[in-house]
Computed example of a mutant assay.
Amino acid sequence: MNKSFLSRVILSSLAFSTLAILPNQAVIAQKNPQKPASFWSNISQLLFSNKPPVKPRKGGSRPIDSICIISPDAPSETRIIWSDRPLFAWQGKARKIQLTDLNNNTVIFSENVENTQQYTYTGEPLQPGQTYKLDIFIGDGPAVLVEFQIMESEERDRITAALKTLENKLQAKKSHHEAIAFAKANYFTKLGLWSDVLQQAYSVQKPSPELDRMLKEIPKQLCTQPKSDRL
C-alpha cells in the first residue's frame, strides 16, 4: 500500500474519531431530519472539473468503444476500493459483467445486465488486498475491462469503524438516508476513494432533485472527457 495513502487514511480517521469532519452537514441534517438537504454541489464540482478525479475506462475500437466504465475507474495506478461489494457503473448498452480473481485467474461472478447501466456486486465479499478484473461484454463480442484492488485489512477496518461512528451519530439525530449517504460520500472524497463516493451516491433509492441531476450528469460529463484525461 502506498505510504502517502496510508498516512491520509490514518490522519483522516483520527480526525473523524472526534467527528471533526462534516460538522455543518450534520447540523443541517439535524434541523431537517425528514428531508435531505442540498449537499452534493461540492462533490459535483470536483467530479465535473476540468481535471475530474474519476478516470473512466473506454474501449478503443468498435464495437466496444460504445462502453465507458465509470466505476471502478482507471487512474494511472490501480483503483483502491474500500467496499467489498463494490458498485459497477458504466455508460452504454452491455450484455454481461464478469468478475475475475487475478490471484488465481478464476472467474468468480457473472451477471446479465442487459437492462441496466449499474450493478452493485452481490457475490461473496471480495478479499482485502486482492486485485480483481471486471469485464463488461457487448453482445457476443469483446469486452471492456478494468482492474481494481480491495483495500488492505488494516486500513479498511479503520475506515469501517469511522463510518460506523458517523452513521450512528446521524441516525441518533434521525437524519434522512440521503444525508447519511452524503456524509459517507464526503468522507470518501477526502480520502480520494472515488468508487466508494459514487457507490454512496447511487445507493440513494429516492434521490433529491440535486442528487438526481448529478447522477444523470455523471456518465454524460465523465465519458465525454478528452481521451488524454480518461486514460
Rank of each mutant, 00 (worst) to 15 (best):
M1C: 09
M1T: 13
S4P: 04
L6V: 08
S7G: 09
R8F: 02
I10A: 12
S12P: 01
S13Y: 01
S13Q: 04
S17E: 03
N24G: 11
Q25F: 00
A26P: 02
V27N: 13
K31V: 04
K35P: 00
S38I: 08
S44F: 00
S49C: 06
K58G: 09
S61P: 00
P63T: 08
P63E: 07
P63I: 05
I64H: 06
I64D: 07
D65W: 09
S66N: 14
I67N: 07
I67R: 11
I70Y: 03
S71N: 11
D73T: 03
T78Q: 07
R79L: 10
I81H: 00
D84M: 11
R85A: 07
P86E: 00
W90A: 01
G92M: 06
K93A: 14
K93F: 10
A94E: 05
D101V: 06
D101Q: 08
L102H: 01
V107K: 08
I108D: 04
E111D: 09
E111S: 10
N112L: 14
N112W: 12
E114M: 09
T116Q: 13
Q117K: 13
Q118L: 10
Y119S: 05
T122S: 15
G123Y: 05
L126I: 02
Q127A: 08
D135N: 11
I136L: 10
I136W: 05
I138C: 10
I138V: 15
I138N: 08
G139Q: 10
D140K: 15
V144H: 07
L145G: 11
L145I: 00
F148W: 02
Q149I: 03
Q149R: 10
I150N: 01
M151T: 00
M151H: 04
E152D: 15
S153V: 06
D157Q: 15
A162E: 12
A162T: 10
A162G: 09
L163A: 02
K169V: 12
A172F: 13
K173C: 06
S175L: 05
S175R: 05
E178C: 07
K184I: 11
K184Q: 14
K184D: 09
L193T: 01
L193H: 04
D196L: 04
D196Q: 07
L198N: 03
Q200W: 10
Y202W: 06
Y202T: 02
S203T: 03
S203D: 06
S203V: 04
K206E: 13
K206V: 11
P207Y: 03
L211T: 03
M214F: 13
M214G: 00
L215D: 07
I218P: 02
I218N: 06
K220R: 15
K220V: 15
C223V: 06
T224S: 15
Q225K: 14
R230P: 09
L231C: 10
